[in-house]
């Protein structure tokens, strides 16, 4: 048989090409074209000359970024926050998933699960309103409680060390429900008969969790961790920006690459230096993901096997609607 070229395929499947074209063009224009702008990291940007007309200046932008110490600070903050958030949010999610699957009171289970997932649906702007209403000096909830008991008010916005805890807590608050949905699927994907048999054989609840539930969670946990590690240099801009805002006192403790880049972009546009920061972030993230690709695929295969059963059930339930 003659090998078919692009044009033969195009003639044969014109309609399919046409169907994929809008998304293809959209992604090409909105995601791929801006990638070429990463070249700005090596240029001195001049608005009138545009991205491609601006002159090159070698590694000068990187020099500025790291010699001022800012580059190291924001890199360190980004990595530390991501690690902290990764550990806490996954840990909470696993615990909640185990507990929720052990609960047999139907309505209690349903209502609590609904409530725990609720924060996922709230915009970070509203979370920002929450944070300010709880922690501000004048009228914040905590200070109003302290005042009621006759204590001295605390100005959280002048206390950088409190913010890693606050940020971490709100991150967990927002994501525990979402992540636990995935773990619950993994736990309920385990054959019910195994649990039943174990119970009849006299396994205690702790033994069942230790030898049946936890091993079934493991592949999911590993996959989730690897996914997050691939994003270790990406700060969740919306979260940091809404929680911390423009409070200069807190920047040393809370500035991540993304918030730093945004602020520099808006306040004193040093395009070259900020482009250097994003270049360094994009390239390093890419390198980490590629490096971990093999592990990811292996674990995803295992995860698929575990979730396949649950997915099938879910599908049957969904098609019934």
């Amino acid at each position: 048989m003659k090998k078919e070229g692009f044009f033969d395929e195009f003639k044969k499947n014109k309609a399919l090409f046409a169907m994929a074209a809008p998304a293809f063009i959209l992604v090409l224009v909105m995601s791929y074209f801006p990638m070429s702008g990463l070249i700005l990291a090596f240029k001195e940007y001049r608005y009138n000359l545009g991205v491609f007309g601006s002159p090159f200046n070698g590694l000068q932008n990187f020099g500025y970024l790291f010699s001022s110490g800012t580059g190291w600070l924001i890199t360190r903050n980004t990595i530390l926050y991501n690690l902290l958030n990764l550990i806490t949010s996954q840990l909470f999610a696993v615990i909640i998933a185990i507990f929720i699957t052990e609960i047999h009171a139907k309505y209690f289970k349903k209502v609590t699960q609904t409530v725990i997932l609720l924060p996922y649906f709230i915009s970070w702007v509203v979370v920002g309103v929450f944070v300010f209403s709880i922690f501000n000096y004048e009228t914040g909830l905590i200070n109003s409680v302290i005042q009621t008991f006759g204590g001295e008010k605390v100005n959280f916005y002048m206390m950088p060390m409190a913010w890693p805890v606050i940020i971490c807590a709100f991150n967990a608050w927002k994501w525990t429900g979402y992540n636990s949905v995935i773990y619950i699927a993994a736990v309920t994907g385990v054959d019910g008969e195994i649990n039943e048999a174990a119970a009849i054989d006299g396994a205690t609840i702790f033994q069942r969790i230790r030898y049946i539930t936890l091993p079934s969670i493991r592949p999911t946990l590993v996959t989730m961790i690897l996914l997050q590690v691939g994003r270790i240099l990406r700060g969740d801009f919306e979260m940091f920006y809404q929680i911390v805002g423009n409070n200069g006192q807190l920047f040393n403790a809370t500035d991540v690459i993304d918030t730093y880049v945004f602020r520099s972009l808006i306040t004193n546009p040093d395009i070259g230096m900020t482009a250097a920061a994003t270049f360094y972030q994009s390239v390093l993230c890419f390198a980490i993901i590629i490096d971990r690709q093999h592990d990811r695929e292996e674990d995803r295969r295992r995860l698929r096997a575990v979730l396949k059963k649950e997915g099938k059930k879910l599908w049957q339930r969904m098609t019934k609607i």
Binding site: S31, S36, G37, V51, V261, A277, I289
Partner: peptide, 9 residues
């Protein structure tokens, strides 16, 4: 896996 980042976008 890879994107242009905030500035160039």
């Amino acid at each position: 896996l890879f994107n242009g980042g905030m500035v160039s976008t």
